[in-house]
């Protein structure tokens, strides 16, 4: 698993309000060279939660990323190289991702994170007005129900 994947995922266990970022338990970290593509990096930069990437790369033993960045830095080759390395070239081969709220571990073996939830971690209970209200998070349920269901 590369850090780009880590940056996109959160713990989606039932009841967890803030499952991002997942903590990293690194048992085996490897580096693999990847072709540099500046356009890709510039495109994805705006989608990256920078703080989470900095923290994650430190956990993986890479501390060259600056804490504060802005999009103007994308013109700097040096910055892009570091961003590229942290985002794409550091792999977590063995270890786990840990939910920051519940401590549930999502194991990573052979580089593949296993994000499947256990039966009791999914929302499987009968729909009630109360559930509906809370699962939607806003009182606009009636409005939502009136939207054409596709």
């Amino acid at each position: 698993m590369r850090l780009v994947t880590h940056n996109m995922m959160s713990s989606n266990i039932k009841g967890v309000a803030n499952g991002f970022p997942l903590l990293i338990e690194a048992a085996q970290v490897v580096e693999k060279e990847v072709d540099f593509n500046a356009d890709f990096l510039k495109n994805i930069f705006a989608r990256i939660e920078w703080k989470a990437l900095v923290e994650a790369s430190k956990t993986m033993g890479y501390s060259e990323l600056l804490d504060n960045v802005e999009s103007s830095m994308l013109d700097s080759e040096e910055f892009l190289r570091k961003f590229h390395h942290a985002l794409l070239e550091i792999h977590l081969e063995e270890g786990a991702l840990v939910c920051p709220e519940t401590g549930r571990k999502f194991p990573i073996t052979k580089g593949i994170p296993n994000m499947l939830l256990h039966e009791d971690e999914c929302t499987v209970f009968v729909l009630t007005g109360h559930d509906l209200y809370h699962s939607c998070g806003t009182p606009g349920v009636l409005k939502a129900l009136s939207i054409a269901v596709y």
């Binding site: 780009v4 996109m8 995922m9 959160s10 499952g19 593949i112 994000m115």
Partner: peptide
């Protein structure tokens, strides 16, 4: 070039963070 990412996830309850 290898895939950027392969993971085991459920399409019904995908693990993507909410702001993404």
């Amino acid at each position: 070039p290898m895939p950027l990412s392969l993971l085991r996830a459920d399409n019904n309850l995908p693990p993507w963070r909410s702001g993404l």
